[in-house]
Design a protein around this nucleic acid. Structure first.
Length: 207
DNA sequence: AGCACGATTAACT
DNA sequence: GTTAATCGTGCTC
């Protein structure tokens, strides 16, 4: 059953910075085993753009690991790091150009019981407030690498809500790039929903 | 074949 | 604030 407001290919086939900015406040939906809906609002996201970006995995060229990032927009790029964590990205821009957005944090909306089970023993406020934590709660791993967000019936997609006003968007340097040379280390390609606006956003999404 | 390291997290002082 | 966990990946020999 196609979702009425699912974001489609043209949305992702644009400048990565625009896509990242506009994904803030949108609802990420994961159809779990059995079809149960797990979802959350995207409140933190980062952009990784091309082979010149020394913070981007594509800096080493096309490899089996980062292959999805070079493919068509609107697909996932899911990778494994630190020997234990999965990370979720959405591929942007034209096919052949490697760029993606890293989903760093969600506010959980649906399926919290399942998320709690997968994050057993951890505090309630740590279900999806980190790139590896949200992948654990949503059961995202290698099997979802290359998944087409725009394909009807896909187990992962974005439901469009209203666009966030600029007043509620914060930008800054990307996280975890301390060893990356400037300007890439400090370039403000991290986007967040202002903390004071998150409750309002959740209330609107609940309507 | 061997090596150094990572778009992180949790547990520690 | 510091550090261990843990292994796939890409690089060098």
């Amino acid at each position: 059953m196609p979702s009425p407001n699912r974001l489609l290919r043209p949305f992702f086939n644009r400048s990565t910075l625009i896509v990242a900015r506009e994904l803030l406040g949108q609802r990420l939906v994961r159809l779990d085993k059995g079809g149960a809906r797990l979802s959350g609002l995207i409140v933190e996201i980062e952009a990784y753009i091309g082979t010149d970006d020394l913070g981007c995995h594509a800096r080493v060229g096309r490899t089996p690991r980062n292959d999805s990032m070079w493919g068509p927009p609107g697909h996932t790029y899911v990778y494994f790091t630190y020997g234990m964590h999965w990370m979720l990205n959405f591929v942007t821009e034209r096919s052949g150009y490697p760029a993606a957005t890293l989903i760093r944090s969600l506010v959980p909306l649906e399926g919290l019981e399942t998320m709690r089970q997968r994050r057993a023993g951890r505090p309630e406020n740590t279900l999806t407030n980190g790139p590896a934590k949200l992948c654990q709660s949503l059961a995202i791993d290698r099997s979802l690498d290359g998944c087409d967000l725009c394909h009807p019936g896909s187990p992962l997609f974005i439901e469009a809500l209203s666009q966030l006003e600029d007043d509620y968007v914060m930008t800054g340097p990307r996280v975890g790039l301390e060893t990356v040379p400037e300007p890439w280390r400090s370039i403000p390609w991290r986007f967040r929903v202002h903390p004071n606006h998150i409750d309002i956003l959740v209330d609107k999404a609940d309507q």
